[in-house]
Design a protein around this nucleic acid. Structure first.
Length: 929
RNA sequence: GGGCUCAUAGCUCAGUUGGUUAGAGCACCGUGUUGAUAACGCGGGGGUCGGUGGUUCAAGUCCACCUGGGCCCA
């Protein structure tokens, strides 16, 4: 080694290859690959194989696009929790999943196939859907990995796997077995030209002109006294079964032309205008609740129509009296259920009135479908109403009306046979609600939320008229009787567990039933397959049995389900119902929910905000650690704001962290724990103080993590880097690190403490920002980019017992407080007067009263220690009388400035070949020489 | 319209069972350093705690209403 040529070269300045700039976009993927090839996930599991397990069960994302930033947030939280729990010694198996079936995929694929003008059947459609789903699984998996998510990707689950599909069917078989499944009508959107049911997503709202009519319903038992309804779908009147009024609104009796018409008070003016009443008076008034219970006569069918109350009745349009046809509207349907009305729908698949003995002869066979010249059914109904005098007024009405996305024709709401699960039979609802008592919620209000849903939801409609899903395995005979048989479903599940659900679509009923012994009463009948598929909430909702019970490394109930707060209504609930039916208990011990990502103004992010909000759009700009730091800085239980400003803040926090770690690595470049470690008992006070603060940090961060309050952990870490390290410890120790002899005990003491601080820090940030933590760890271990064992294989840091060092710690704390409150103030005033620049130019005098707490402290501490803590060249003491209070004064240091240590000393000593330096530096240089 | 929920400095967050002039980090402004330098130190400004009313000796903290967000329904 060449002799140093300049004084600066005799200093032990920081030295490290740890790059100042992350270059995360390039270097993070390399580290990700390193983790993958070195099988970090498997090693983490092996490390804790005998530890207690912590099972976080992954809610499967839907596989129809790039990973959204909200989904990224979810996966980042899961990964952070698992990395933390693993560091705490838990076995943390993580089997990620994918939700594959469902309308959005079927919709997209259908569009694509239709554009190619090819004919296709359900089997081909399903094949395309499967390919579609598979391709996005590949995309999303790689995007999740890029976020730093560690998982058992070999054992990921897919709801379209045959084995999984079989479990869905077995869940359905359990429902059937317990007598919960029944068939009933429910209105769905129906496209008459396409002869198919439509989902909300397949509906387009287009401008449409409908007849708007006011129709009177005579109150039973009263002469010339009527309720008046308003509707824009005359064709639904034959299915009218009730009239709904608002319970708390006022209704008035309008007397005109010798008759009485009951109308909501607020609607009287418009109504009388529409009807052209030149002269009318207002008679009695009452509330809607008082009208309820009366019977009215259907205007042209011999049938009563009851007056009922409904909260959804509005005063904006119409008459405040709503025509209810339970078979032709969702509100009507729910009102029907509430009042035990028949879900009546006298239409066939072609939208033509059926002859059921009630429909007037002149209507039977007429289609309700609207064509250019209107709907035949509407015309005929209007004719009947006109001739009977029930029609009070009529005009054309322009509004938005739902249309079929394919045929562009108006759709109708039409009740069809659906499959339902009864939620009250076998006390199922009560059992679910009780089951929640054993479940913990973060935040606690999640319990209220799911409880409300459980109490209020009507029976579960589980059938969908779709192809991309798991079929409802029922058979019909020619008379429409249904074969619903749990044994048969189990039999089919066994077949499907091998070949998948495509079997149902590609085979005939005979082929499917081959090998199954039908019940005697069903033998010999000609059977056809059912056409419906199961609600996809059953798919994901039975993951507890398809995944948690089918893989030996996990178990049920899971320790944690963690999803967005929308899943109180979705997955948390569907999982609970299915689990309660199958196993009599909830599938989770704790439910943790996060809010939704919103923009800088706190509003929901939408496509109109501009750029697509994919995880990749952020990762390719900022890197995964910055995105993760953002996630973990936010209180995720409420709305989570995201903006450029907020991400820039995460960038700055990341840079601070990076610089802090880089400084420490540089300071530790010549330190070996094996050779140089100084035991606690021999450490200097400032080092002990820092270790004390590090203990506090460990406690605070651990506490925050245990409560899943990562944002508190990040705040503690930021404060630690800034307040404890950067402005205090790092600043103080520079002098001894740089200027002392490399092996000086004081210097080695500091390096010993710094090693502990450094390792603690990177272990604490490991769950949140794994890339930089592992990078710093590798440089700390080997001085190079990678080392043998990843940081992920290290345990969570433990507090250090400082023992007798506590006294020194509190001394240092008092002196640092004095520095904050008095010393810096004195220095700043000198600086303002341009008398000093850096603090080492100063000489501080402490004026201590005889009754001051510092009297005792100063007996234990040397003035050199004080000068070091204050980062000044010298400190002297003066005594003040009791009761005076402590004072601090400062002036420019006297003597000569040492060009090596920059401290002012009375005189310099000459050392060849470097020239004049302070006596302390001279001793150091003598050893080098 | 309903259920659940949120609202503290420019930003992200603390603020224990109601009790002295509401805190932190970042940002901002000023300044020092140039041996953490696309870094670091020191100093400073900045909030009538969304609004209104109430309970109380005392409220960011309890109650009511209102305003504005979010999720889920309708």
């Amino acid at each position: 080694m060449n002799a140093p040529e300049k004084l600066k070269d005799t200093l032990n300045l920081p030295k490290t290859n740890f790059p100042m700039r992350a270059n995360a976009v390039v270097r993070e993927p390399a580290r990700m690959n390193h983790w993958e090839t070195s099988e970090v996930y498997a090693k983490m599991q092996k490390k804790n194989q005998n530890g207690p397990s912590f099972v976080l069960h992954d809610g499967p994302p839907f596989t129809n696009g790039d990973v959204h930033v909200g989904t990224a947030l979810n996966k980042i939280l899961k990964d952070s929790i698992l990395r933390y729990k693993n560091a705490r010694g838990f076995r943390t198996p993580y089997l990620p999943g994918w939700d594959c079936h469902g309308l959005p995929i079927e919709h997209k694929v259908t569009k694509k196939l239709r554009a190619s003008k090819k004919e296709f059947d359900a089997v081909e459609l399903r094949k395309e859907c499967e390919e579609f789903s598979k391709s996005y699984i590949e995309t999303q998996r790689s995007q999740f990995k890029r976020l730093g998510v560690l998982a058992d990707w070999e054992k990921e689950y897919k709801t379209m796997n045959p084995a999984y599909e079989a479990e869905i069917l077995r869940t359905f078989a359990d429902f059937v077995d317990q007598g919960l499944v029944y068939r009933s009508k429910k209105p769905v959107y129906w496209s008459i030209p396409c002869q198919t049911a439509l989902a909300e997503a397949e509906i387009e709202y287009l401008d449409h002109t409908s007849p708007s009519i006011f129709v009177r319903f005579q109150i039973k038992g009263e002469q010339d006294e009527y309720l008046v309804i308003w509707t824009t779908t005359p064709w639904t009147l034959p299915a009218n079964l009730a009239v709904a009024v608002h319970p708390r609104e006022t209704y008035s009796e309008v007397q005109a032309n010798g008759s009485s018409y009951w109308i909501a008070e607020q609607r009287v003016n418009e109504f009388t205008q529409e009807c052209g009443f030149s002269d009318h008076t207002i008679g009695r008034t009452c509330t809607g609740a008082e009208l309820a219970g009366k019977a009215t006569l259907h205007p042209f069918i011999d049938r009563d129509s009851m007056v009922v109350t409904a909260e959804y009745v509005t005063m904006d349009t119409g008459t405040g009296c709503v025509h209810i046809a339970p078979g032709h509207g969702l509100d009507d349907y729910l009102t029907g259920l509430e009042h035990d009305l028949e879900i009546y729908c006298p239409l066939d698949d072609g939208g033509k009135y059926l002859d059921d003995g009630q429909i007037p002869k002149e209507l039977v066979g007429l289609s309700v479908l609207e064509k250019a010249d209107g709907s035949k059914a509407n015309h005929a109904v209007l004719e009947i109403l006109t001739s009977s005098g029930a029609l009070l007024a009529q005009k054309q009405y322009n509004h938005q009306y739902p249309h079929c996305w394919r045929s562009k024709s108006p759709v109708i709401f039409r009740a069809m046979d659906q499959w339902f699960v009864s939620l009250d039979k076998e006390d199922l609802r009560t059992r679910c609600i009780n089951g929640l008592k054993e479940v913990s919620f973060t935040p606690e209000w999640g319990r209220n939320r799911i409880h409300g849903f459980l109490e209020a939801r009507p029976d579960w409609c589980i059938s969908r008229q779709r192809s991309w899903g798991v079929p409802i395995p029922v058979f019909f005979d020619d008379d429409g009787n249904v074969l619903l048989d749990s044994k048969l479903i189990e039999f089919l599940a066994a077949k499907i567990s091998q070949d998948g659900c495509n079997l149902w679509f590609s085979q005939t009923a005979e082929e499917l039933l081959a090998g199954y012994e039908l019940p005697d009463s069903w033998k010999g009948r000609k059977l056809t397959k059912g056409q419906d598929t199961l609600d996809v909430w059953i798919d994901s909702g039975c993951s507890h049995r398809a995944v948690l019970r089918e893989n030996e490394e996990v178990s049920c109930p899971a320790d944690l389900y963690l999803e967005g707060s929308d899943q109180h209504r979705g997955w948390f609930q569907s999982s609970l119902w299915t689990s309660m039916v199958s196993t009599q208990s909830a599938p989770y011990r704790r439910i943790l929910t996060h809010g939704f990502v919103v923009n800088g103004e706190g509003k929901k992010i939408s496509k109109s905000d501009g750029k697509p909000q994919t995880a990749d759009s952020f990762v390719t700009k900022y890197g995964a650690d910055v995105l993760r730091l953002w996630v973990c800085s936010e209180d995720f239980r409420r709305d989570i704001p995201l903006s450029d400003e907020i991400l820039e803040q995460a960038v700055r926090a990341y840079r601070t962290l990076r610089n802090t770690l880089r400084f420490q690595l540089g300071a530790l470049h010549d330190f070996s724990q094996a050779e140089h470690l100084v035991p606690i008992e021999q450490m200097s006070p400032i080092d002990l103080w820092t270790l004390g603060k590090t203990n506090d940090l460990i406690r605070e961060v651990t506490d925050a993590c245990e409560k899943y309050e990562f944002h508190r952990a990040i705040q503690c870490l930021n404060r630690f880097c800034s307040g404890i390290l950067s402005s205090t410890y790092h600043d103080v120790i520079k002098d001894r690190l740089y200027t002392l002899d490399p092996n000086d005990p004081l210097r080695r003491s500091t390096q010993s403490a710094l090693t502990k601080v450094f390792e603690t820090l990177i272990k604490l940030i490991g769950p949140f920002t794994p890339y930089i933590a592992d990078e710093a760890w590798a440089f700390g271990q080997s001085g190079e980019e990678y080392c043998k064992d990843s940081l992920s294989l290290q345990d969570w840091p433990k507090e250090i017992d400082l023992g007798a060092g506590q006294i020194a710690v509190s001394d240092v704390q008092e002196l640092l407080d004095l520095k904050d409150s008095h010393v810096n103030e004195a220095l700043e005033s000198l600086r303002v007067k341009k008398e000093i620049g850096q603090s080492l130019d100063a000489w501080v005098t402490l004026c201590i009263a005889t009754d001051s707490k510092f009297v005792e402290i100063l007996k234990r501490r040397s003035l050199d220690e004080l000068a070091e803590l204050f980062i000044v060249s010298s400190v002297t003491l003066e005594n003040l009388p009791s009761g005076e209070g402590d004072k601090v004064t400062a002036c420019h240091a006297s003597g000569i400035r040492c060009p090596r240590s920059w401290r002012w000393v009375p005189e310099l000593v000459k050392v060849e070949p470097w020239g004049e330096v302070s006596p302390r530096c001279a001793e150091v240089l003598a050893k080098i020489g």
